[in-house]
């Protein structure tokens, strides 16, 4: 009995060790987003709260916590309050299988990739329930858009991950990374380049980020599925969206850019002087780049129209991924390059 309790405590501590920094990272991602978009528009961004505005996210959090949670009349109260929890729980749960370094993972499971796919798609229930329980037409339209978008892009995303699966031959995220060992030209981004692009764009669409942020199109439906939410219940949606952004960035780094692996591996001089850098730093650096890219995209592109999103997802991404899976199969069977050496049959 006691060792079960101890196990429970250790797992709890590890979870806290992941979620604590994650929530902090989410807070400062919002700050980074406002700053970077401001800079790209030749503005300064927030700079009033604390030195250079560094305390701005803290002030935002306090403001959101102190606000009243308004349940609209006619709303289904239970579901209305359940929806944000349903939305945020999977986006946190997905972090359980993320390896941050060799052996540095909460759950070293062999179905990690499947688990990630399941968790990222289950969040759509939160969106649908939020839209339906709000008793508001804007929220309903927003949630339907969001649902159809997430489901459509799930397919392209799944296909892109099939490519990763074929290349690595395992669903264990740690082993996927280990399969890319041996310098940045061993990483999967070269043989899987089209899949990387598609995975990335689908990831942006999955997280409902610009330019795919139809579900909250301000001009037509105010704020989409979370239009009726205020205070802490809104904060949960916000938190989940940014946690998802960070998750997608980390996953891209893991699947295509060698996760925690040192990019200078195999380069005679550079490998020696970067040996001391811990693996998690490389992972965060790579994920940070993709996070920046996501913000960069938001600052650059106008929002897609609904039918354009559907066209892109179904008529471009899915065929392209299928074609590239064929190409990839041939590449593997031919034992091409450093990636699939030794697996060829010819």
């Amino acid at each position: 009995m006691l060792d079960i309790l101890i196990d429970f405590f250790i797992i709890g501590a590890k979870t806290g060790l992941i979620l604590g920094p994650l929530i902090l990272a989410v807070a400062y991602t919002t700050y980074a987003e406002r700053k970077i978009i401001g800079y790209m528009q030749m503005r300064l961004g927030p700079n009033r709260v604390g030195p250079k505005g560094w305390l701005q996210p803290i002030a935002d959090v306090i403001k959101l916590l102190m606000k009243e949670v308004v349940v609209p009349s006619g709303a289904n109260k239970g579901l209305f309050l359940l929806a944000p929890v349903l939305f945020i729980a999977p986006s946190f749960a997905a972090w359980a299988v993320i390896p941050f370094d060799v052996e540095m993972v909460l759950a070293d499971t062999d179905v990690g990739l499947l688990y990630i796919l399941a968790m990222t798609s289950i969040a759509v229930y939160g969106v649908i329930i939020a839209g339906w329980a709000s008793n508001s037409k804007y929220a309903l339209i927003g949630s339907l858009r969001s649902a159809s978008q997430i489901i459509s892009y799930e397919i392209a995303m799944g296909f892109a991950l099939v490519g990763v699966l074929m290349a690595s031959g395992t669903m264990n995220l740690g082993q996927i990374v280990m399969g890319q060992e041996g310098g940045f030209w061993h990483w999967y981004w070269i043989p899987l380049l089209p899949l990387l692009v598609i995975y990335w764009i689908s990831g942006v669409a999955e997280t409902n980020r610009a330019p795919f942020d139809l579900p909250e199109g301000e001009s037509e439906i105010v704020a989409g599925f979370h239009v009726e939410y205020a205070g802490i219940s809104f904060a949960l949606f916000f938190l989940a969206e940014y946690a998802n952004m960070i998750l997608i960035s980390v996953l891209t780094a893991l699947f295509f850019f060698g996760g925690w692996l040192n990019p200078f591996q195999g380069i005679p001089f550079m490998e020696g002087i970067t040996e001391w850098v811990p693996g998690i730093a490389w992972l965060l650096l790579k994920a940070g780049f993709f996070l920046f890219l996501m913000i960069w995209l938001r600052a650059t592109f106008p929002r897609y129209r609904y039918d354009q999103i559907m066209r892109l997802g179904w008529k471009v991404f899915i065929p392209v991924t299928v074609v590239w899976l064929m190409v990839l199969a041939f590449m593997i069977k031919a034992g091409v390059g450093p990636w699939f050496a030794g697996r060829g049959v010819f």
Binding site: I36, Y39, M40, L44, W296, A299, T300
Partner: peptide
């Protein structure tokens, strides 16, 4: 498009 916004990141505010 990304290049345009990327350049503006470094412009004078």
């Amino acid at each position: 498009g990304l290049r345009v916004t990327g350049k503006h990141l470094w412009r004078r505010k």
